[in-house]
């Protein structure tokens, strides 16, 4: 359907007129038309691949998979950890050193538990050390490595005490290292007492 131009230079006008407005009979550039055909072809390919044959993943699935992988990885890191393993780790100088670095970093555990891990016990005059003593034989929420690890990860069960969950900040690995560092001050099988929870703050 190739309408010849009127004088080889001017395009021809279409016949219809509306409100005195007329229209030239001109074609879209072929390359432009071609981009439309490409999008049409692409739509068919896309529709078949994504919605009919499930070739390729949707973004939603990709995100879900990545999240699941992270969660799996996290769980796996704790799964194999029992008291025995944690005791072993507390004797591993590399892990203990990493734990010490996390513990002693300004603004971390050391802030409340003190550099000697004894908090107020050895510094009764220093009221600002608010944590529990961790190097004595007295525990409040259990003295097994897994109990300690749980507190490091999830924070104190008593929310009025201010010990926050550290897993979001240190990551699973960091928590295990800190717990190993704390347990390096203790020996497997040593006797400990569970103290009564202190009186609620006035």
């Amino acid at each position: 359907m190739n309408t010849p131009r009127s004088n080889d230079s001017e395009p021809v006008l279409r016949e219809h007129v509306f409100d005195g407005i007329q229209e030239y009979d001109q074609k879209l550039p072929n390359w432009w038309l071609f981009t439309f055909y490409i999008t049409i072809a692409w739509f068919v390919i896309h529709w078949l691949a994504y919605y009919q044959f499930n070739v390729g993943q949707t973004d939603e699935k990709r995100v879900d998979d990545a999240m699941a992988a992270i969660e799996n990885n996290r769980l796996r890191q704790f799964e194999s950890l029992d008291d025995k393993k944690l005791w072993e780790m507390s004797r591993d100088p590399k892990i203990v050193e990493a734990g010490r670095a996390s513990f002693m970093m300004q603004g971390r555990c050391v802030t409340c538990h003190g550099e000697d891990l004894m908090a107020k016990k050895t510094h009764p005059e220093n009221l600002t050390l608010v944590g529990q003593a961790l190097a004595d034989k007295e525990w409040q929420y259990g003295g097994n490595p897994s109990d300690v690890l749980k507190i490091v990860r999830k924070g104190s069960p008593d929310v009025t005490k201010g010990m926050p969950p550290w897993e979001p900040m240190l990551g699973p690995r960091g928590c295990v290292e800190v717990a190993a560092f704390i347990m390096s001050h203790h020996k497997e099988g040593e006797p400990f007492t569970i103290s009564a929870p202190p009186a609620p703050a006035k």
């Binding site: 190739n2 309408t3 010849p4 131009r5 080889d8 230079s9 001017e10 395009p11 030239y24 001109q26 074609k27 879209l28 550039p29 072929n30 390359w31 038309l33």
Partner: peptide, 21 residues
């Protein structure tokens, strides 16, 4: 080949049939 003079009503580089000049 169409070597028409440029005009205001159409694009010189597009022929009447939509092909490229």
């Amino acid at each position: 080949m169409n070597r028409a003079q440029p005009n205001l009503a159409s694009v010189t580089t597009i022929n009447a049939d939509g092909s490229r000049r």
